[in-house]
Nucleic acid binder design. Structure first.
Lengths: 341, 341
DNA sequence: ATTAATTTTGAAACCGATTTCAATTTTTCT
DNA sequence: AGAAAAATTGAAATCGGTTTCAAAATTAAT
């Protein structure tokens, strides 16, 4: 075990006090420029490395920010993380990332673990079966900021960064109606998740606005993965009267449906017009290209992180009250899968 | 600011010494079971939370493991991270993740930052322009284990978890040859990256083994993103004599090429047989399905992390010498894009 | 009952940087 | 030059667990 260089070593070497060394290295104004230079150089030469533990112990800060995502291996989530990492890195924070794997219990465990490792702030996209936010209470009590993004839950009290899912779904559905669709199937995930809950609402309102009756049979619940297409299309085939529009809450799943529909001989968009969600790479690569909602994951990550970091400055306590929910702009991108001339 | 409960508070409350409290909470054998119970309960009731800073300061461990990836928003990397997170979480470690964005300089900065935050170990997939491993020297000197995965560089000294890229490329190329291809284009990324370097070798050897001359014109360098298809196909069109096989080092890019080739009127696989790499979701969703190499990202993450954690136990120093490079099994998955009856 | 062996416990040093408060040095002003 | 003000510096306490070493308490052995 090598002996580490401490500020005491530097102090002894230069015949000054550890206090001065500490101040110099933190660029404290109350230390003479010459002494500073001297200390910098000595620290350099001796290969000094600040001991974060000791420093954290006093400052009570880790410069670590926790992120809890439902799944790491999701195209959307990894864009979000990329955006977060960029902002955090530039601001000198580290990212501690863990995944809940869509399990409430694992989310709770992760939350505890983040709390114990004393992250300075927490960013969370909720698991699909999370029913309460109790497990975040310790953070609130200690005034450690917690910001939710995307999966913000149906809880009013919390900060969150989302898109307007209702509006987006309304747009998507309206678009299908404008293309002549009258019987539109909506495929979505667990209704407990705000994201799907709101999209369903948007779907319903769009029907209402165009005087199309809502039909419960046209709602299909799914885990939305890339293999779900088969089952979904089987269900679709059995629906009477025939459907002519399909709005899937996720591009990978939409692509899977598209493939299966083509296998079954449906023409897209003539027989069934299809709209996805997310604007994943995949929506641009399958044939026909899938009309989708552009869902700005990277920006969402940047914004959520920037917001969190703002909360960390003690001076900006008022921000806490002013910013309750931030809504990012999303947009419908019309492509071949739904465009009827 | 709330006063935090410390072991001193508990000690005073129960009339024992802080030392005993510390030992009890760490389940040290040299403390009476009854006292332990008593202390556990008191700690519970008082809402005690261990202060990691103080604890780290002595133990010199953070329980944080650093991961540096080229990009977070990559389907492959996020699978790897998912695997790593699972193993780390189960073993009680946190993951600190940062991305190099394929920049050597950012990688160096991230490495420094990880070192300063005193991670217990480091997992790295190198940026494409990294030319030396100097920046990891401080880790080596302090005996902090560093393990590379996937992008391990062309450096012999290092531990690493990879697949046998040469063999995989050999298999892919041989398969195309067996389907009757004679003029096979290989699309790959920066040759400095071991992954592409080795795949090119595999491609060449496969040609050699089937007595097909190597033609420099059939090698196309690309950044392999999902929009690269257009340029690649333009190049392909200009190649004389015509090509009849295409081996792309990445599924997203292969899909992009596939789409573009179809737009240009090529029949797949009759005119050009296509093989990708990675077995990304996308390879199963485009039409025709893309023949590809199954690249076990999740397992690679698990394995790399398990390996790193092993290195952390001081008793297993011998492991260091025994394990130099771990090679994961990969396999060719034959699908319609290359299957000629 | 006495001694030896074993368990438990506590006092105090320690990890390394930060910070308060007072002391010292330097600069400025009459 | 002498006093007052400003700029630097240092001693020592502090953050909260962990650990060493020795003392005290308990159990086992003779």
């Amino acid at each position: 075990m090598e002996k580490e260089i401490t500020i005491y070593d530097i102090a002894k070497d230069l015949g000054v006090s550890p206090a001065t060394v500490s101040r110099a290295l933190n660029n404290h104004p109350a230390v003479n420029e010459k002494t500073k230079k001297k200390i910098y150089n000595a620290a350099m030469e001796m290969g000094y490395q600040s001991n974060v533990f000791a420093s954290n112990l006093r400052s009570k800060r880790t410069n670590n920010i926790g992120v809890i995502v439902p799944r790491l291996n999701s195209s959307f989530q990894s864009s979000v993380l990329a955006g977060m990492e960029k902002v955090a890195n530039e601001a000198g924070f580290n990212l501690i990332i863990s995944q809940s794997l869509e399990s409430k219990d694992k989310e709770i465990a992760n939350t505890h673990s983040m709390f114990n490792s004393r992250v300075d702030g927490l960013l969370v996209s909720l698991a699909s079966n999370t029913e309460s936010l109790e497990h975040f209470a310790p953070f609130i009590k200690k005034k450690i900021p917690v910001i939710f993004y995307d999966r913000v839950g149906n809880f009013e009290e919390m900060f969150g960064v989302t898109i307007d899912n209702m509006k987006a779904a309304h747009q998507a559905t309206s678009h299908l109606i404008e293309q002549g669709c009258q019987r539109i199937v909506h495929v979505l995930g667990n209704i407990k998740v705000n994201v799907y809950h709101e999209r369903l609402k948007g779907y319903k309102y769009a029907l209402l606005d165009h005087s199309i009756p809502f039909d419960e049979n046209l709602i299909i619940y799914s885990d939305l993965n890339e293999e779900a297409g088969y089952d979904i299309v089987q269900k679709i085939k059995s629906i009477e009267p025939r459907i002519d529009g399909l709005f899937v809450s996720n591009d990978a799943c939409a692509a899977s449906c598209l493939k299966q529909l083509k296998l079954e001989g449906y023409r897209i968009p003539e027989d069934i017009a299809v709209v996805g969600f997310n604007n994943d790479v995949i929506s641009r690569l399958v044939e026909p290209n899938i009309t989708t909602i552009n869902y700005p994951g990277y920006e969402m990550g940047e914004l959520a992180m920037r917001n969190l970091i703002n909360h960390l400055d003690v001076n900006t306590e008022n921000l806490l009250k002013n910013t309750n929910r931030i809504t990012l702009r999303s947009e419908l991108i019309i492509r071949e899968s739904s465009k009827r001339k």
